[in-house]
């Protein structure tokens, strides 16, 4: 473990924590443009967080300590997740501590806690949201794992750093399997981040909400932490997509010059990625909840197909 790895790690974590709300703001702004609305300020997410942190927490009478602790745990999970994903450098302190499978486990841990918190107060919407979230989760999680497996089979490793190194720093090879995996990953990310077409982050319409239904009872700093964690999750998924499918520009070494360059490349990729997300959300319609399993089932099948394609076409050579 050298000093640069530590610096890169801290920088990456700080970047994730600070920039994540900005990414959410950027996506909202793009969406507003595309839908011909006037957009909220780019920094609106920060203002909202600041406001929420100032407000008192109003908890239901029978909210238990699990309910009160969950926002902190969820936030910590997402912070750790964004520290594991290699964005600025592949030489990170945390990267041996958790590989791709552990990352999936980490997302699942956060999901279980938010679902349990949703059930804790005992309202009809809370448990409805928890049930739907777990439904989305149990289909999205294996699909995500299969996407990682495809990448691991190509790079002979499940360590995210090694995967990114193998994909970014070897001679350019066209992997048909990664194309399938990429589509699957996009579908999973939309579902996992509660975006259209699976969920709508701005709705409070009872028939359709998933994520919002679970967090209805949260207020004040708890809500702020959950919102912040949600934007961290979006940030982590975006960086994962970049790391797996567009890894060009993530340096192996963590010296200051390459870190600066990597930061520049990352920001431009995120700007583009955020715009694409807004484009997908604008161009598609929200599905009925019963269609979500079909959507995610397709993602799962595509991801398995990606593995099969790799096994059949790409291992022979």
């Amino acid at each position: 473990m050298n000093l640069y790895a530590l610096i890169a790690q801290l920088l990456e974590l700080a970047l994730a924590l600070l920039v994540a709300p900005l990414l959410t703001g950027w996506v909202n702004q793009c969406r507003a443009w595309l839908q011909n609305r006037s957009a909220p300020p780019l920094l609106q997410s920060y203002y909202t967080l600041h406001k929420l942190f100032h407000k008192d927490v109003l908890a239901a009478h029978n909210a238990s300590s699990l309910f009160l602790a969950a926002p902190y745990i969820i936030f910590a999970c997402m912070a750790l997740a964004s520290a594991i994903v290699p964005t600025l450098s592949t030489e990170l302190v945390f990267s041996p501590a958790a590989d791709a499978i552990a990352l999936v486990g980490l997302f699942a841990l956060a999901r279980v806690f938010i679902a349990l918190a949703g059930m804790d107060v005992g309202t009809s919407f809370g448990s409805l949201g928890a049930r739907r979230e777990m439904l989305v989760g149990f289909l999205a999680e294996p699909a995500l794992l299969m996407v990682f497996f495809t990448a691991s089979l190509i790079s002979q490793s499940t360590s995210l750093s090694t995967i990114v190194e193998a994909l970014a720093h070897t001679d350019f090879v066209l992997y048909p399997s990664l194309a399938f995996a990429g589509v699957a990953f996009t579908m999973v990310s939309l579902a996992e981040n509660a975006r259209i077409p699976v969920d709508n982050p701005t709705t409070h319409l009872e028939l359709t909400m998933i994520h919002e239904a679970m967090i209805l009872e949260y207020s004040g700093r708890h809500l702020a932490l959950i919102e912040w964690a949600a934007s961290l999750k979006l940030f982590a998924y975006s960086c994962l997509g970049i790391a797996l499918f567009f890894p060009v520009g993530i340096p192996a070494l963590a010296d200051p010059a390459s870190l600066g360059l990597a930061l520049l490349i990352l920001v431009s990729k995120l700007v583009l990625g955020g715009f694409l997300l807004a484009l997908i959300e604008t161009a598609s319609a929200k599905m009925r909840i019963f269609r979500a399993p079909e959507f995610l089932g397709t993602a799962f099948l595509l991801a398995v197909l990606a593995m099969l394609v790799h096994m059949l076409l790409e291992t022979g050579s």
Binding site: F53, H54, D56, V57, L58, A59, A60, H61, N62, A63, L68, M119, V121, G122, T123, S124, F125, G126, S127, L128, A130, R131, H204, E206, L216, E217, S219, R221
Partner: peptide
């Protein structure tokens, strides 16, 4: 910030009646 906490009735999108039988 602070660690103030107040207790109140559950919000549940404004539905006034809440019984245990209404949960999943």
């Amino acid at each position: 910030y602070h660690d103030r906490i107040k207790r109140g009735a559950a919000w549940d999108c404004g539905f006034p009646l809440q019984t245990g039988r209404m949960q999943d």
